[in-house]
Design a protein around this nucleic acid. Structure first.
Lengths: 159, 159
DNA sequence: ATTGAAATGTTTTTAAA
DNA sequence: TTTAAAAACATTTCAAT
């Protein structure tokens, strides 16, 4: 990706604006960064094509759709051979309740962010699906009591 | 919020589409859910005004903007009085490297998701800023080796 | 290589049926 | 809910920097 590697001040401004308001019109965006609409559009398209902007998404409030519980679940696998790891990754991707999953350094292999309607839903997810999987070893769940800082995009050098 | 509480099949379809492609045009969206553009627009606006759709954001690839390292940092506070907790929350919101922070049940009070350019950047963030704070007790960092499942929105009952 | 202005076609939006 | 008109917008082309 040639052009996407050189992000100037205006590119960073565009990213900052679009991280905050992903549906800004090109006209409005152009005005905010003091560019003509055509120049602005070409820059945004370059960012999209270059993969700097990976996509756009509506942010849905979990509470409003009946997902009142968020948990972080740390999981250690008993076996670390390629097949076991691939199997686990496949399951994680199949489980709708898992909204994000990372392989981590440290004492626990995986960190899963899980959403559920309530404790009963979470419980049956954990017992009937996660723990039912062969290869899943130590499991540790923590529930979100309060969101101190909600994901609002990445820090950008100089907006 | 009266109207936002009753989400029918079509509302859920709209949310599903907009979670995947937040910049879909109203015309395209209407076609996908088999609605006239005006009916579709009114539904989307109701979801926005009711807070079901909290906003729209461009998703930026951290690697492409020089943020090669993501870490999860678990932090326990020494003091749990209201002032200490509020102070900590304030700091967390000031620290650009912290992209998300939750107060959790369990043995560690807070879980922070942190992005940094590299290990040196992360190290100075942790040593000079987090650990420099009075009141911060036990700290445990794990680094993301691989993203097994990337955040792609919430599960919705029946798309 | 990147910009701004003009021209074109599309979409959103309003208002009325 | 649909339709039709108006306004706003996205997008392409092209000349200029």
């Amino acid at each position: 990706m040639p052009a996407a590697d050189t992000l100037d001040r205006i590119d960073l401004q565009l990213l900052a604006e679009l991280q905050r308001q992903g549906r800004l019109s090109n006209a409005e965006l152009a005005e905010r960064v003091h560019l003509s609409p055509s120049a602005c559009l070409r820059r945004v398209q370059r960012l999209e094509r270059g993969g700097v902007i990976a996509g756009y998404r509506a942010e849905v409030d979990p509470e409003r759709i009946g997902l009142g519980l968020t948990a972080f679940v740390r999981i250690r696998l008993n076996h670390h051979d390629a097949a076991a790891v691939a199997d686990f990754a496949g399951s994680v991707n199949d489980w709708d309740e898992v909204v994000a999953c990372h392989a981590l350094t440290g004492d626990m292999d995986y960190l899963l962010q899980v959403v559920a309607a309530d404790l009963e839903h979470f419980s049956s997810f954990l017992l009937d699906r996660v723990l039912a999987r062969p290869g899943v070893g130590d499991v540790n769940s923590s529930f979100v009591l309060r969101t101190v800082k909600a994901m609002r995009g990445l820090p950008l050098p100089a907006g």
